[in-house]
Nucleic acid binder design. Structure first.
Length: 502
RNA sequence: GGUCCGUUCGUCUAGGGGUUAGGACACGUCCCUUUCACGGAUGAAACACGGGUUCGAUUCCCGUACGGACUACCA
């Protein structure tokens, strides 16, 4: 049987970076096994539905390159892939389960249950309490029929049999055992006719012939219910295998990574910018922060998984061939933004100049710079080894696009002497006619010129650098001069002399 | 509270009954470089604790502690 896995987020807002990792692991597994990777939208909670979230999820997956083989927006033979479009299917199966004796109607209202919880803090609807509640197990047949015919709202609940051991073989954690006395009678079908996650995911996974369920650790406790459902439907022999992923934890402190941590630690925790309706519902994304999707993938892949060995940088092809569920860690992994930055830097260094130039072009344009592709290529060559994020090309290297905004006056004062102005004027005349205006020639000639003037290069070159860039940081001076061109270089030298020669 | 899951340098992790416990990020020092980075070298830094099992446990078992998830007509 060929592998089929799914990523099944619910459209309640921006897709958390942990969700991206779950999608990635599913994707890697599917690709490696020659199987299919599907996207299913779990929108059975009408109250939590957020417009735009579905598009956001799809765009996120596309950005990181995890293209589903089937799913909402991707076609496929097992649709519909949006659960709200499958409502009738769940109702049919829920009633089927009632007939099989593995589920029952319950008429207790949310208010009834809330009142019970008030009275008894740990109240649970289960095999011990259901006999004293209002459901098809306690109602007579005629009472039941009367309520159903009157259209009384009801839910369908799982009927958990007493004294049964539920064994789960988790691919990551080994065998996990639950006793049915600890398993409650979960709601399967809600009063609005929609299924809960538990029902919908079992029916869909069965109908969509899912072979492996790779999902977050938060689902481990409810897997007992899921196993019972497979058995109740008579699908035990085709039940998928489970793999419960460790959580992604906060960078510091306790608990899992939350969307608030982004603002708190000044880093994105979402793949793309999310712009919600309110000011508080806005979050930055990795893409807009200037990450390369390949770097995000590499970073995420290694956050909770490692194939063994010392390799850190993996192409997507390498990830696919090296991936194995058995090598996924059991414990939660802290989100280390410093490591994410390192990956990005590495991927920028390794990227083709043309690719980078294409990515920074729109960034330059929003800053109001209109530059040629050739010039962008020069910027990339100059800045590639010293940036972490894509916008750094423009922001750190702004002086390649416009004139110096601010000089490092401290260094200027340290190096400026009585004859600096004269020296610079002579150097400008020298630069005016030097041929070719090219880095190695410039370097050799200018150094020689400076020496002939009886000055040490160390006294002049820093000033030359500041004249062109304003700062002591940055690319090699003569490379910058070439990128700027002869005319602009001379103009900046003149400007520099004018500024400091008082 | 109950159930379940987990615990190797600060962080991500490799490893696995006998190892100088390996790599990477971050950090320190040095080299390269008349800048900054890149690169190279190097240093500091870990098996939560207590019992077993064993000739020998960081590795296997059991506890304890700590951390986490779940405990909705949310997913």
């Amino acid at each position: 049987m060929s592998v089929r896995v799914r990523f099944a987020p619910s459209p309640t807002g921006a897709l958390h970076i942990g969700g991206v990792r779950t999608a990635l692991y599913n994707y890697l597994f599917a690709r490696q096994q020659g199987g299919k990777f599907l996207l299913r939208i779990e929108d059975t909670d009408q109250n939590r539905f957020v417009p735009g979230a579905e598009d956001y999820i799809i765009e996120s997956l596309k950005w990181v390159g995890l293209i589903p083989d089937e799913g909402v927006g991707f076609g496929g033979d097992y649709g519909p892939y949006r659960q709200s479009d499958r409502k009738a299917i769940y109702q049919k199966y829920a009633l089927d389960l009632v007939e099989r004796g593995h589920a029952y109607y319950a008429f207790d209202t949310p208010e009834d249950l809330e009142a019970l919880r008030q009275k008894e803090a740990n109240f649970t609807y289960n095999q011990f309490t259901r006999s004293s509640l209002v459901n098809s197990l306690t109602l007579s047949e005629s009472e039941l029929r009367a309520r159903l015919e009157a259209g009384t709202p009801y839910v369908v609940r799982l009927k958990v049999e007493p004294d049964v051991e539920i064994r789960i073989r988790d691919l990551i954690r080994g065998e996990v055992v639950f006793h049915s006395s600890e398993v409650d009678d979960k709601v399967l079908l809600k009063a609005d006719g929609m299924p809960t996650y538990h029902l919908a995911n079992i029916i869909d996974d069965h109908l969509m012939e899912i072979t492996h369920v790779i999902r977050g650790e938060e689902w481990l406790p409810s897997t007992a219910h899921h196993v019972l459902l497979y058995q109740g439907f008579g699908w035990a022999d085709t039940m998928p295998q489970f793999a419960h992923l460790p959580l992604i934890l906060k960078p510091v402190g306790n608990g899992k990574l939350s969307k608030r941590d982004g603002a708190k630690f000044g880093m994105p925790v979402f793949p793309l910018d999310w712009v919600g309706a309110t000011e508080e519902d806005r979050f930055p994304g990795f893409r807009e922060a200037g990450f390369l999707p390949q770097a995000v993938v590499n970073f995420l892949a290694l956050l909770g998984w490692h194939p063994g060995g010392d390799q850190e940088l993996f192409s997507i092809e390498e990830l696919i061939s090296a991936f194995s569920i058995e090598h996924i860690s059991k414990s939660g992994a802290r989100f280390d933004f410093e490591k994410a930055k390192w990956f990005n830097q590495k991927y920028i260094q390794a990227s083709a100049p043309e690719y980078l130039a294409g990515l920074i072009k729109p960034l330059a344009e929003t800053k109001g710079y209109s530059v040629s592709a050739a010039f962008l290529l020069q910027v990339v060559a100059l800045m590639k080894e010293r940036v972490t994020f894509l916008p750094d090309f423009i922001e750190q290297g702004y002086y390649l696009f416009e004139r110096v905004r601010e000089y490092d006056t401290e260094t200027v004062q340290k190096k400026w002497t009585a004859n600096t102005a004269v020296l610079f004027s002579d150097m400008m005349r020298f630069l005016e006619q030097i041929e070719p205006f090219e880095a190695t020639n410039l370097e050799a000639s200018v150094k020689q010129f400076v020496q002939e003037q009886g000055v040490k290069p160390g006294d002049v070159l820093p000033l030359l650098r500041i004249a062109l860039a304003g700062t002591m940081k940055g690319p090699a001076v003569f490379d910058m001069a070439v990128a700027l061109g002869r005319e602009e270089t001379l103009a900046r030298l003149q400007l520099f002399v004018n500024t400091f020669n008082r």
